[in-house]
Design a protein around this nucleic acid. Sequence first.
RNA 1: GUCCCCGUAGCUUAAUGGAUAAAGUAGAGCUCUUCUAAGGCUUUGAUGCAGGUUCGAUUCCUGCCGGGGACACCA
Length: 531
Amino acid sequence: MTKESIKTLISEALKELNLEAGDLPAQAGFVVEHPTDFKMGDYSTNVAIKYGHGDELVRYIVQNKPDGVERVELVGPGFINFYLSKEFFKNSLGEILDRKENFGKSEHAKGFKVMVEHTQPNPFKSFHIGHLMNNAIGESVARIIVANGAKVKTVSYHGDVGMHVAKALWKGDYVLGSKAFEEDEKAKAEIQDINKKIYDKSDPEINSRYENGRKRSLEEFEKIYKKLETNFDFNFFESEAADIGKKIVLQNMGKVFEESQGAIVFKGEKFGLHTRVFLNSDGLPTYEAKEIGLVKIKKEKFDFDLSMTITGNEQDAFFQVVEVVIGEVMPEIKGKLSHLSHGMLRLPSGKMSSRTGDIITAEELIEDVKRRLAPTSPGGVGDEAVAIGAIKYMILRQAIGNDIVFDIEKSVSTEGDSGVYLQYAYARTNSLLEKADKEISTNAPRENTHEVERLLYRFPEIVERAGKEYAPHHIVTYLTQLAGSFNNFYTHEQVIGDSPEASYRLAIVKAFNIVMKNGLTILGITAPERM
RNA sequence: GUCCCCGUAGCUUAAUGGAUAAAGUAGAGCUCUUCUAAGGCUUUGAUGCAGGUUCGAUUCCUGCCGGGGACACCA
């Protein structure tokens, strides 16, 4: 019994009863969904509101009632509610137990090839909490797409050349250089000169400082990736994208680009956009031109159907323009680019920015959260995973796109709606399963269906929706609700003991254990065996 | 100024055009001689304003108010 089979049944009913859409307005149509309240059943459809004839529809559905449906009701303004049977829940537990770590995976997106670019820390600058946010989102989006059966390659892109590097190299500190660039004309000229030398490699001293700094940064990033359990299939660099991008710009002079005030620009106005500079008046490629080069490199490395770039939403306008430009200069890629943007990780005091120096590095935040984790914590190696899980949860719990106000005092609470809550519920089931002295069986005697059973079987639908919408928060919301339901079950039913229902209860525990672990894994959050 | 995004309990967030708007947190009260109380139970409390479309709007459209962002040689 699935959503699809209910839909099919209803379509048949409409046909048999001659209620098909013919004379209805275009917005007619019906949906099958899970009602918010369990009292209203496991599935619900509004078909009788759209088409009327509720009694006849229900009669048809009852007569052709599919396996797994126990009861069908017509209620309220015309909702038809479906209640699933104990047999159905027994079978769905069995399926979870069989499929184990594969439960939740599907082939909805089989054959689809996606490149996901995220994190993008810049050498010479710190890996701050903004990167942490981007990484949490990118990693989970990539995993969600994989779970839906697509082939995914992940990419990090590093700004190893450009003005920000010149600013950092000027006096050895990015913040200092950035400030001087704004305020001091002489410093500005010097920094621009350094920028040129980085590109043309004419100054041995700068070359050496540059190579050292770059290497050190990249090694640092690798350590953080490991901590965050992120693997990149490719690391691309602005230094390799720059020449390619510049070349493409020059090849399309007059067609796509034109000269304006000494720079090479794309006039976006004819596309309802704005003008952006691709080569500056020194002839050097800007971020815009490099992006063109990057996309070309990506396509050569992996023949994607979709290339997704995840960044902060302050880049929305930039990507709108660049996507149009790339469609013009590389028509084969037109329509295959997607920009997924998220909000900003803010501190209560305001914008988090490495330009003002008001930054918190990822490392600092992780350490801070570790310190704040429950004093009861055993202090083992698992603590870091719990801390990172707590942070990732905070980032992934809400829809991508909105800002997150990160109040360190309050936000990383270990109580209630949190990563710790999920991890704790999971860890507790491990202990239960270890202590269990009966076999796990769905054929054992049982009481009435528990709410947690009515949620467990939905996991694959949630993963599918999260994949279609690139929205990890659906999984977070679901897991949080699931954990709540499970904790309720756990408190009210003794699992270990002599009761005849113990084997079935253990099956529920095991199924929850599997789904929670699979869910956390898809989110990129560690499921600790013990806490 | 132009364009984009966002306004939901005191706070932080959910809600593929549907039913009584869902959670957490904070406030009030209860719950460990039983499997991990980082848990469970009860309770107070919300869709910025004004129109429109619809049988039905937190959701779609228009205007206003409030917040954030982008808008030429940064990334």
